[in-house]
């Protein structure tokens, strides 16, 4: 079987009834999709399959032979972060990081579907993702910033300094 992973064609030997998550993590050593609940409930394994967010733990690899898969490593480029990555960076939307690749990919896809998404749409669109650290507020604020286009995608810079009162 073949997958186009972040633009690079990869041959796979993972058995076809194993999950896409297993193939990515254990055969291709791409560990950004996290093995959380393994039943579709936590969102941490979310990747884009042909551009659409999917729970990698629920997708048998045999069902997506030939598909294009994007993990969080595929969002930016060597020179630039994607808007969602930059927004998470500047808005301190990450703590332990376990849920973040799933959140970023889901948010990236949400803003492709609904470029000007407001707070309610963002909360609804990311409802399947769990974060046990941030309390979600910073994540929602980051996605709101990306939706407004309020992002600086240059890689070579410091994060914006927190001003007094802005820290949660």
């Amino acid at each position: 079987m073949k997958l186009l992973v972040n633009g690079i064609e990869r041959d796979l030997e993972t058995p076809p009834l194993e999950s896409l998550l297993t193939a990515l993590r254990e055969e291709l050593a791409i560990t950004s999709p996290k093995a959380g609940c393994l039943q579709g409930g936590c969102g941490a394994c979310t990747v884009l399959v042909d551009g659409e967010p999917r729970r990698a733990c629920l997708v048998p690899i045999g069902a997506v032979d030939g598909a294009s898969v994007t993990t969080v490593e595929g969002l930016g480029t060597d020179r630039e972060l994607s808007p969602i990555q930059a927004a998470f960076f500047d808005n301190y939307a990450t703590q332990c990081g376990f849920c973040v690749s799933g959140f970023m990919l889901a948010a990236h896809s949400l803003l492709e579907r609904e470029p000007g998404a407001g707070r309610d749409q963002i909360i609804e669109g990311l409802a399947g993702h769990m974060c046990r650290c941030t309390g979600y507020v910073k994540i929602v604020e980051a996605v709101e910033a990306a939706a407004r286009g309020d992002v600086d995608t240059r890689r070579d810079r410091e994060p914006e300094t927190l001003t007094e009162g802005s820290q949660a």
Partner: peptide, 21 residues
Amino acid sequence: LRPGAWVRIGESPPSTPKAHM
């Protein structure tokens, strides 16, 4: 600043898949 810096996608040698079944 460099998401993915730890995993060089496309360059990592494929590991042997575990026998899950």
